[in-house]
């Protein structure tokens, strides 16, 4: 076997199999016991399985957009403002080494990015109307078709 790479080079947690006991699933699968329980007491099972619509929590919703200055918080009915979770605005993500490289590139292409229409600019003021057709060919945006790695350096 071509085990040429030292496995200790990268830290991967080891699983202790000493305590683990495996048993095959049998013809009805591992959930068979649960199914048999349901057959013994169908009433209880049916009550438990009754469908209800998914919950729509009554909480303050925060609109997340592409830049800080466009994040707006509006509370829903009966929800006091002080319950608002504004944590996202306070988040600072420390860039990794690789991300820093990317961010340098981002700074360089700042002017180019400014040309891209923002969510706010595109947000329709009134009724949104669906276009029934996908983007017409050529599908690739002009901006991208001339964008190459070389340009971004």
């Amino acid at each position: 076997m071509a085990k040429q790479v030292d496995l200790d080079e990268i830290d991967i947690p080891k699983v202790d199999l000493g305590e683990y006991r495996f048993s095959p699933p049998s013809s009805m699968g591992w959930s068979a016991a649960e199914y048999e329980k349901l057959l013994n007491n169908p009433e209880e099972g049916i009550q438990k399985e009754t469908f209800s619509p998914p919950e729509v929590p009554q909480t303050t919703l925060t609109e997340l957009s592409l830049s800080d200055d466009r994040r707006v918080s509006i509370s829903l009915d009966n929800v006091p403002k002080d319950k608002e979770d504004g944590s996202l605005n306070e988040v600072t993500v420390e860039p990794t080494e690789k991300e820093e490289v990317h961010e340098k590139k981002a700074e360089k292409s700042e002017n180019q990015e400014k040309k891209e229409p923002s969510a706010e600019e595109k947000a329709p003021a009134d009724d949104y109307i669906i276009s029934e057709n996908p983007p017409a060919k050529p599908w690739l945006a002009k901006r991208l078709s001339v964008f190459t790695l070389k340009d971004s350096e």
Binding site: P57, L61, T62, L64, S65, R70, A141
Partner: peptide, 29 residues
Amino acid sequence: WHLQNNGLPIAQLIPTRSGGLCLSGGDHI
């Protein structure tokens, strides 16, 4: 949003009236 702005045939994401791409309820969106 990036994909649709670059012309990919994809269902268009609808921003909120204030330009939000999604709504956060803390543990759900």
